[in-house]
Each structure stands twice: as structure tokens, then as C-alpha cells.
Nucleic acid binder design. Structure first.
Length: 108
DNA sequence: CTCTTGACCATGT
DNA sequence: AACATGGCCAAGA
């Protein structure tokens, strides 16, 4: 596993491994995927070659806010999707990182 | 090879 | 608290 495909392959693998009801920040994914900067993560998800198998909606900002600028299928759909998965949101419209942030994958 | 842009993050004002 | 700037790395033209 974790074959050294490209940095992208690692990103997709990590994102696909995000458990339901949990979310990860771009920086977190970048760190676990051994990617240089979170920008590459965002870029990788942007190309999104397997959107049906890559839950990019489970990837959020470090603040817990959702993707600004572009949605994978509509505006606000991401939030609806996360809510349906069991992710908790705050009154501020952000993800409750205290409860939904996946840190179990933190690879030392 | 060089320049620009990009689904970010942290800091400063 | 909100807005603006800098820095990081990679891919496209």
C-alpha cells in the first residue's frame, strides 16, 4: 500500500480512508499524505479523477469551514452531505472539529 | 526553462 | 472579528 505513485495518489488514498462522520483539514491530509503543502491537496482534489470514490466533501479548512469558491455538485451540498454522514456542525456554520475532526490517522 | 495560478494556512493590521 | 499579505509546492502554458 502507500505505493509511491504520485503525491496525488497518496492524497486520494488518505481522503478515501476518511471514516464517515469525520472530516480532515487540507493541512492534516497533506501531512498524513506526506505532501509538501496543503495547496497541492486542494489541487489534487480539484482534478478529482474519482469523485464518486473520493469524499472530497469530508475535507475541510483548518477552521472547519467548507470549501470556499467551488462545490463538487452545488452550493451547500457539501454541508448537507456531511450532516447526512453524521458530521456535526456548529452554529457558526462550521464543522465541529472537536467531534468530527479525524486525528486517528495521524501518522507520527 | 520561466511565469502564473491555485479547493491553503498563519500572521499582521 | 474581518481583511490583506506572505510563504509553501506543483502543474499548465
Amino acid at each position: 500500500m502507500q505505493k509511491t505513485t504520485n503525491s496525488y495518489g497518496r492524497i486520494y488514498d488518505v481522503v478515501k480512508h476518511i471514516p464517515e462522520g469525520k472530516v480532515m483539514t487540507y493541512g492534516q491530509v497533506a501531512r498524513i499524505a506526506n505532501v509538501a503543502t496543503p495547496r497541492v491537496v486542494g489541487f489534487a482534489l480539484h482534478v478529482n479523477p474519482d469523485e464518486q470514490h473520493i469524499p472530497c466533501h469530508r475535507v475541510v479548512f483548518a477552521d472547519g469551514s467548507l470549501t470556499q469558491g467551488y462545490a463538487f455538485g452545488g452550493e451547500g451540498v457539501q454541508k448537507e452531505r456531511l450532516l447526512k454522514e453524521g458530521v456535526v456542525f456548529t452554529q457558526k456554520g462550521k464543522v465541529d472539529l472537536e467531534n468530527s475532526l479525524c486525528r486517528t490517522l495521524s501518522n507520527s
